[in-house]
Simulated scan of single mutants.
Amino acid sequence: MNFLTKTRSIGLIAVALLAGCAELEPLTEYRPVVDQQRTDMPRFERDLEACRAVAVQVEADYRQRQQEQMGANLMTGLLVGAITGAVVGGGTNYQRELTAYGAASGMAAGAAANDYSYDLVTYGPRRVVDRCMAERGHTILNDIGRG
């Protein structure tokens, strides 16, 4: 297996693992927890729809930024890892192996750098819904963004 094939294989595995992360219910189904006995439920439902609409746009923006950042992190990791592997390597075969290993390690590190971004994309729009609802006078009982 040559350097490029190994690097692509490892990159595809990293992307597949990240794609397999557990997803929460869609934002359109997210409901903050409130005390229904002390809440005007018809008003709550109207406000919830309005707040979800704001959060859907925020979610789309977060996802776009996450994808851009992930691509940048993967490329940076790939380049830094490949350069490090090439500098450390000795002979030609050994150097290629270290370069491939360095590139793969760098890609994995770049993918792992997106943990915060995943949390922001997953919970950020839900936090927007909760804060929006609170600003409209509803008492939210759950942890903000965690429904």
Rank of each mutant, 00 (worst) to 15 (best):
D47R: 02
D47M: 11
V33P: 03
G91T: 12
C21G: 10
R52E: 06
Y30W: 08
V128G: 00
A55R: 05
L141T: 07
T76G: 05
G89W: 07
A134W: 01
Y62L: 08
A55H: 08
T84M: 11
P32Q: 02
A108V: 15
M70E: 14
L4A: 14
G20T: 09
R146M: 14
G102W: 00
E68D: 13
T92G: 02
R96A: 14
R52Q: 14
R136Y: 06
S105V: 11
D130T: 09
M41D: 01
V33H: 12
G137K: 05
A86N: 12
E135Y: 04
L98V: 04
L18F: 15
A100H: 02
P32I: 07
G90M: 09
R136K: 15
Q66L: 11
E23Y: 11
A113Y: 03
R38C: 00
M41S: 02
Q64K: 14
D119L: 13
E29I: 02
E97Q: 13
A14G: 09
D115V: 13
R146N: 08
L17E: 00
L98M: 15
G102K: 00
V129L: 08
T139L: 11
V128T: 15
A50I: 10
V87T: 11
M75P: 03
H138S: 04
Y123S: 06
N2V: 07
V15Y: 07
Q66K: 12
Y101I: 09
D130R: 05
E97R: 13
V33K: 15
V88A: 12
A16L: 14
M1V: 13
G147L: 02
Q67V: 11
C132D: 02
N2G: 15
E97T: 12
M75L: 15
D143T: 15
T39P: 10
C51H: 03
A86T: 14
G110R: 00
D47A: 15
L79E: 04
V34Y: 06
L120N: 09
Y123E: 04
Y94C: 09
Y123Q: 08
E49S: 10
G77N: 03
E49C: 04
N114I: 07
G124A: 10
Q37P: 00
R136T: 06
V34A: 07
I13P: 03
Y101K: 03
G110E: 00
T5F: 10
L78K: 04
L79Y: 06
N142P: 05
A60D: 11
V121K: 06
E135T: 11
Q66R: 14
A109K: 01
T76I: 14
V56R: 11
A60I: 08
V58P: 03
G85Y: 06
L18D: 06
V88G: 06
T76D: 02
Q57D: 15
M133S: 05
G137C: 08
V33R: 15
I83Y: 04
A111N: 06
L78Q: 02
P42Y: 12
L48N: 05
N142W: 07
